[in-house]
């Protein structure tokens, strides 16, 4: 039985640094992906799909806010400051989340890769030893379950419906697979995180992810690309230029009067 950490005060030193890094990764992934998904609102292929995608964006940004609050409890700045004042290198999101939305195939394949990752991540966090994080992970599992249903619905249908849908989905799988592998980029904190029982290791998460994704893609008639180099860097703050553009867009109004209320 591992020791549990009931509150922010109960973690210190390198375990605190590791925990903070872990939560930044969770929060930034959700904020940036939520931002990308939110752009579909009003522009999706059909009204019903539009409404569902918009809810996903809201859930993701909402979860980001909740993670930022955990960070604030650990002594980091407040959620709005974190979202609206940091520069790109301070972000810890994976490159998968920050790519532009692309077409509907690109967005749904990305969402599927992310949802499988997130589902297993949350399962591990729910059993984790940092109580505030475990509680939050349990609270959002219902939302995540719906996201998973949504993603499976799209991938299983678009994968082998028409020549065009198959071609678009395969192209997105080919483009995004390496970025998806980047979700599991090893970090210097990995061992501490696992040893303290905050969450399982990245390689452990990856194995579960790979088995599930491969079986689904196979079922959907899509091919898993071979020999893909994982796109790393995001977890160390080394990002594609798209992130700075995204942040400029996101922080545009805020920067007009940074000290004011909006």
């Amino acid at each position: 039985m591992k020791k549990t950490f009931a509150s922010p005060d109960s973690v210190s030193g390198e375990s605190r640094d590791a925990l903070i890094d872990l939560i930044y990764r969770l929060a930034d992934d959700d904020l940036i992906l939520g931002h990308r998904n939110s752009v579909w609102t009003g522009l999706a292929p059909i009204l019903e799909a539009d409404i569902a995608m918009s809810s996903l964006a809201q859930d993701e940004i909402g979860q980001a806010v909740a993670y930022y609050r955990l960070l604030h409890d650990l002594g980091e700045p407040d959620p709005d400051t974190l979202a609206f004042t940091r520069s790109a290198q301070d972000y810890r999101c994976a490159s998968l989340t920050l790519l532009d939305r692309g077409d509907w195939a690109f967005s749904t394949v990305r969402q599927y890769f992310y949802d499988v990752y997130k589902t297993h991540r949350l399962a591990s966090l729910s059993d984790g030893t940092y109580a505030p994080l475990a509680q939050l992970a349990r609270k959002v599992r219902g939302e995540q379950k719906y996201h998973m249903m949504h993603s499976r619905m799209w991938v299983s249908r678009l994968g082998d419906a028409t020549d065009e849908s198959r071609e678009r989905m395969q192209r997105s799988v080919d483009t995004l697979y390496g970025h998806a592998l980047g979700l599991f980029e090893p970090t210097p904190f990995e061992q501490i995180i696992a040893d303290h029982g905050f969450c399982t290791t990245e390689s452990g998460l990856f194995e579960t992810w790979r088995d599930e994704v491969h079986s689904m893609l196979d079922h959907a008639g899509l091919t898993i690309p071979g020999d893909v180099t994982p796109k790393h860097g995001g977890r160390r703050g080394q990002h594609l230029p798209e992130l700075q553009l995204l942040l400029d867009e996101m922080q545009q109004v805020y920067r007009l009067e940074p000290t004011a209320q909006w």
Binding site: P45, L158, E164, S165
Partner: peptide
């Protein structure tokens, strides 16, 4: 741009 999705 959504036509292929609805058709599929």
């Amino acid at each position: 741009e959504g036509a292929w999705v609805r058709e599929a």
